[in-house]
Nucleic acid binder design. Structure first.
Length: 568
RNA sequence: UGGGGGAUCGUCUAGUGGUAGGACAGCGGACUCUGACUCCGCUAGCGGGGGUUCGAAUCCCUCUCCCCCAGCCA
């Protein structure tokens, strides 16, 4: 097979293309992204957002941004604003097509009257418990409510009284009259309206009856002229109800609902309820905590919108349950940042090195490439003097076999500078290594073509005198288990206690002092980092690690530990 | 035990009666002043059993396993 071929379209695009070809809806394509403003958007929503907006665009149609705000109890303007910000950030523009289910409350109400008048809806005065009992079970059919055969006039009168606020919450509901014996529970006279005496964030106190999801969502789609209504699998058996509304009401358009599977990410949870719990109970510092799978959290972590869209494109659309490896996501941001991020030196866990044969007051500035594979990005100067910092992990007194770093008597290259050799290890009384004494070979300066001998390895470093100290935050997966919400135990038991490591005395090269918010860097041999604008101020910069570099050495170490146990 | 869905390399995903392909991961190698990047190579899959057919992931039968549904949430 030809590898140049474009990847196959997903099943939804096949369906839409076929509909267009057959001239349904006059070839028009219109979609909508319908979030409920009861929480922040997460990476799972990105799949729906991309699907809704991309398909509309691909077929020359339009996509509405519509808030499904039919439950004032849970919804809040804070979420409405955050959601819009996140969708825009992802790169989508709904133009003037911003809508709310609440914009349609009057029309929805008219549809309800219509159903009552045609004998297809009735006011039920049973309690919630009684309704549940009469609904039956998965295997037993339900029973009709004693109020099911009220006259049209009585239903009209009661519904009007509900609307006028003459009843308390829970006294009555409006139900569709469909089939209490249906094997599909959604068709056993579903509730259409309930009484809620709560101020709505948009309509205020105008209404005290609010439509239920199935009713409001279907008819909002129909009123807007949606042609294709995408949603996740759990709504699959709501489709017959969706279609029942379309068939039994004088709707201007008949959209088609198509379901796809949500996606799940290993080492994380993806339900708004659970994410809200992490926020409320203080396991994270907010919806935008860089460990959260929310779009705002990932943005703060350093993910770009392009990398998220790239990721969504790669995981595809199917109806199969799926759990995606974290590496697949990380790969997307690494790929982008490897290409675009300027390189810098940062010593995260410093160990002082004295270059004993370097002049006491000596100082020189060396040229270091901003990007080794992209010379057009130029160079910056890094200072060297007699005392420098290297990474503590880059020295081992008794190194394992394949260690390609510094150890006693061994030579390594200071990247973009000289070859040094470890002559002496200085320890404090407790035996902890506090300083290294090294000699350097002045003939081996980088770029001179001299001193090209093979050494053990190349390490990064920062001049002690010129270093500026910064806080660096190393974020890791929020959960220690790949499937935190599988099994009977509480998902919070799987929280990773090491998901955040705060380093307060990282030594950064001077050029980093000019770092701007949004600028991303590769700290060589470490990973990709960005300023956390929330935590930084003029006195103190705080850098956040977006993702580590791929690290085959760490992998080897990990495998060795697995093999020989973790003791010692 | 009712109804609705789903099963293709470790993980995602193509395939629509004609050599099971791609991505990520993994393994091996080359390169390397980042144990990065890049490049080369390799490993690895149609849930089981029948049937139709010259030929089946694809069509038929059957079995198994997994997910969703009993809110006045969405």
């Amino acid at each position: 097979m030809n590898t140049d071929e474009a990847p196959g379209k997903d099943f939804i695009r096949h369906i839409v293309a076929a509909d267009v070809e057959e001239g349904r809806h006059s070839g028009r394509v219109q979609t909508r992204f319908p979030p409920e403003p009861n929480g922040y958007l997460h990476i799972g929503h990105a799949k729906a957002i991309c699907l809704d907006f991309d398909i509309a665009q691909e077929f020359g149609g339009q996509c509405y941004m519509r808030f499904d705000d039919t439950n004032p109890e849970k919804e809040d303007i804070e979420y409405v604003e955050a959601i819009q910000k996140d969708v825009r950030w992802l790169g989508y523009d709904w133009g003037d097509r911003l809508a709310h289910a609440s914009d349609y409350f009057q029309e929805l109400h008219n549809f309800a009257i219509n159903l009552i008048e045609s004998g297809k809806a009735y006011v039920d005065s049973l309690s919630a418990e009684e309704i549940r009992t009469l609904r039956g079970t998965l295997t037993e059919s339900g029973k009709n409510s004693p109020y099911r055969n009220r006259s049209v006039n009585e239903n009209l009168r009661l519904f009007s009284a509900m609307e006028q606020g003459e009843f308390e919450e829970g006294e009555h509901v409006l139900r569709a009259k469909i089939d209490m014996a249906s094997p599909n529970l959604n068709l056993r006279d579903p509730t259409l309206y309930r009484i809620r005496k709560i101020t709505h964030q948009r309509t205020g106190d105008k209404w005290c009856i609010y439509p239920m999801y199935d009713f409001a969502h279907t008819l909002s789609d129909a009123l807007e002229g949606t042609t294709h209504s995408f949603c996740t699998l759990e709504f699959e058996d709501h489709r017959p109800l969706y279609e029942w509304f379309l068939e039994n009401l004088p709707v201007p358009h008949s959209p088609r609902q198509i379901e796809f599977s949500r996606f799940n990410l290993m080492f994380t949870v993806m339900s708004k309820r659970k994410l809200a719990q992490l926020v409320d109970e203080g396991h994270v510092q907010g919806w935008d905590d860089p460990r959260m799978p929310t779009l705002s959290g990932m943005r703060r972590r350093g993910y770009t919108a392009a990398s998220i869209r790239d990721f969504i494109g790669r995981i595809g659309i199917t109806k199969k349950e799926n759990v995606i490896e974290l590496g697949a996501l990380e790969n997307c941001i690494r790929e982008e940042l490897n290409d675009t991020a300027p390189r810098r030196f940062a010593v995260l866990k410093p160990l002082k090195v004295v270059i004993s044969n370097y002049p006491d007051d000596g100082e020189e500035w060396l040229e270091a490439a901003n990007h080794p594979n992209r010379p057009e990005l130029g160079f910056r100067q890094v200072p060297l003097c007699r005392e420098i910092y290297i990474e503590r992990d880059d020295f081992e007194e008794d190194p394992p076999g394949k260690f390609r770093r510094l150890s006693p008597g061994v030579e390594v290259r200071l990247r973009y500078a000289y070859i040094i050799k470890c002559e002496d290890v200085i320890k404090d009384p407790s035996g902890e290594i506090i300083e290294l004494h090294c000699s350097y070979d002045p003939s081996t300066r980088s770029g001179t073509g001299q001193g090209q001998r093979k050494v053990k390895g190349t390490i990064h470093w920062v001049s002690a005198k010129h270093a500026f100290c910064s806080e660096v935050r190393l974020y890791d997966r929020l959960f220690a288990s790949p499937y935190p919400d599988r099994g009977a135990d509480n998902f919070k038991q799987h929280l990773n206690p090491d998901s955040l490591e705060v380093l307060v005395d990282a030594a950064l090269e001077p050029a980093l002092a000019q770092a701007q918010p949004e600028e991303r860097f590769q700290f060589e041999r470490q990973g990709y980092f960005m300023i956390d604008a929330e935590l930084s101020d003029t006195n103190q910069l705080v850098f956040t690690r977006t993702v580590t570099l791929r690290n085959s050495w760490a992998k080897m170490e990990h495998q060795a530990l697995q093999k020989f146990g973790t003791a010692g």
